[in-house]
Nucleic acid binder design. Structure first.
Lengths: 341, 341
DNA sequence: ATCAGCACGCGTCGACCGCGAGTGCCAACC
DNA sequence: GGTTGGCACTCGCGGTCGACGCGTGCTGAT
């Protein structure tokens, strides 16, 4: 029967809600008290038995209440329809806080902070990817006679730098000529086209500039375009300790994993198009050490260009609706700010 | 008697050593077993009674062994004479690991990581201060018609960026002229002189450039020279959980405090001249939340110029000799690399 | 001053027990 | 068939108790 199915789901929802807020197994009696389902506790118990058979909930010990399983959370999240948006005050707070930002770094730092605060969890933001960026400017600065620094400035405000060892002394004049060549070839072009443009540059270059140009091109293409070490900003790790019980003995592991950029990047790999929330619950995470956490992530950027991912990492026992709302809101603002400027 | 004093200190040293490695109160019997002082446990007990009266050690409960107090650690550290340097292998590891660095960010990231690994504690490194730096280059990039980005490149490889709202549309040509003016006035000069030079620039500027130049000057001087938001890199926070017992209930507090830049900067405020280790033990810390930790810090840079501070934060029960050696070694390498390049 | 010996204090650990929460099941009811 | 009150049962939790042993402080001897 449809209605019986519905009530069973209502029971699951109640269990999730109560467990999230009280973090203790919830009993049938507690459900009928706090949520008015219009049935008795015995009926709820029957439903709970079914839910348990189907694997949505479990009981820690024989005579305790039930807690949701990963599968239970999954169903709960999938059926989540009306994500209540943030309050006006919250929206205004975000906006005004982020508007004070001074540069890209600052935007991202403030955003993680905001997100961590809103969700009371660990927040992560990826730096906007370079792949879709337009080159605004390339600077070449001689640091020592045989060493230059390449500075790449893109349209979303990101500034990247690389040391380049030229292997030979170079004159200030040569540096200037290289700089001019690079800029006229690349400015206002997409970084994805850089590889092609740059190889042309090498061919066109006068003999004496060919070697340094080759080295510069290699660094530019290899380390900035093909293998950009995706940077990310982390915040609110203190929130992990909020309920140490949520990470049975593995708090350490989680913290360690979070310090590994590679691992965290994997968590956000799913972030596809902006606006689409991805939720990875417990065991669904591919990363071993993160099996005791849930990850809520989303892509940010404008409608057409995905700039990067952001999200939060927390216990599977988290306030999914609230977290999703916050993540979405922050992604909107970050996207606006980085695109709008 | 001098010799009796000496033995009492030897007892303290033994207590510190044993407590640090076993992290449990150490008994008189254990001392005579592990360290050969040539006296009986009864004698050690007498010494311990004295040490306790003088406040160097304490016992958690009446019939337990002793643990060092902050004052005890202090004495221990003060009398530390021969800091055993790192092993050759370790030195080589550090060197080769840091040499692979790609730019300043990378040097610092690798260094914290290294330091955290060596000490198994939380490592912190301040970005090299701007105040003593030489300006290598200033770049001005128009991001939108009325907005430019100021990029400052200094001789130690640091790259800083600031958005500047000009309040009015500006031509590409004007930007170029401003850039030229800024560079010819500031390049190869100390940032400390920037304020003076820049105010000259404003006066010399042609009327139509005066307004944008003023805005740029303000940002440059105020936000980069006078109030540089001292950035810092943190690593190894996972090590805090290594022994949660070390932070009775306050692990959360410590983590939170570490996320506050201001707080952490205060911890390192003492870092004076390069090469001088500063140790703050427990209650000696001015920061309230850090009273349960010890901070070992040092300045790094060349002989004459202090570039910044670095160090570690850990439990008062830490391996001081080892930590001090590691901190000193890493500071040396970081100083070398940033100065030598 | 050092040391062996001893009595004492006290924290730790395991066993035990009673309580109560929460369940599963059953029989009755709509 | 779905729902409900009732009831017996399970099992974890918290508190008590006692034995044990560790580490100490003290005392008296050297």
């Amino acid at each position: 029967m449809a209605s019986s199915d519905e009530r069973r789901f209502a029971v699951l929802r109640a269990i999730v809600a109560d467990y999230v807020s009280n973090q203790e197994p919830v009993a049938s009696k507690a459900i009928v008290e706090r949520h008015n389902l219009g049935v008795s506790s015995a009926t709820v118990r029957n439903d709970m038995a079914t839910l348990e058979e189907e694997g949505y909930i479990a009981q820690p010990h024989t005579s305790a209440g039930r807690i949701p399983t990963d599968k239970g959370y999954r169903l709960f999240v999938d059926r989540l329809s009306d994500v209540k948006p943030l309050s006006g005050a919250e929206r205004r707070a975000i906006r005004s806080f982020l508007d004070g930002a001074i540069d890209l770094d600052d935007v991202l730092r403030r955003s993680v902070r905001m997100l961590a605060q809103l969700t009371r969890q660990v927040a992560v933001i990826q730096y906007p990817t370079l792949t879709h960026s337009l080159v605004r400017h390339i600077e070449l600065v001689a640091l020592t006679p045989a060493r230059v620094m390449l500075v790449l400035i893109t349209d979303n405000g990101r500034v990247d730098q690389r040391m380049i060892d030229l292997g030979d002394v170079i004159t200030e004049d040569a540096v200037a000529r290289l700089r001019t060549m690079l800029n006229s070839a690349l400015v206002e072009h997409h970084l994805t086209d850089a590889a092609a443009k740059v190889s042309e540059l090498i061919e066109e270059a006068p003999a004496e500039l060919r070697d340094p140009m080759t080295r510069i091109a290699t660094v530019l293409v290899e380390s900035l375009v093909e293998h950009p070490e995706d940077r990310l900003v982390l915040g609110g790790t203190a929130n992990l300790t909020r309920n140490a019980a949520d990470f049975p003995g593995s708090l350490r592991q989680v913290l360690e994993a979070l310090e590994e950029q590679v691992v965290v990047l994997k968590l956000f790999a799913a972030a596809s198009s902006p606006g689409t929330i991805t939720v990875r619950i417990g065991e669904e995470n591919e990363v071993e050490e993160m099996r005791s956490t849930s990850v809520v992530s989303i892509g940010y950027g404008s409608q057409h260009a995905l700039l990067g991912g952001l999200g939060v990492v927390g216990p599977t026992r988290m306030d999914y609706p609230g977290t999703i709302a916050a993540v979405r809101a922050v992604a909107n603002y970050v996207g606006d700010i980085l695109a709008g400027r």
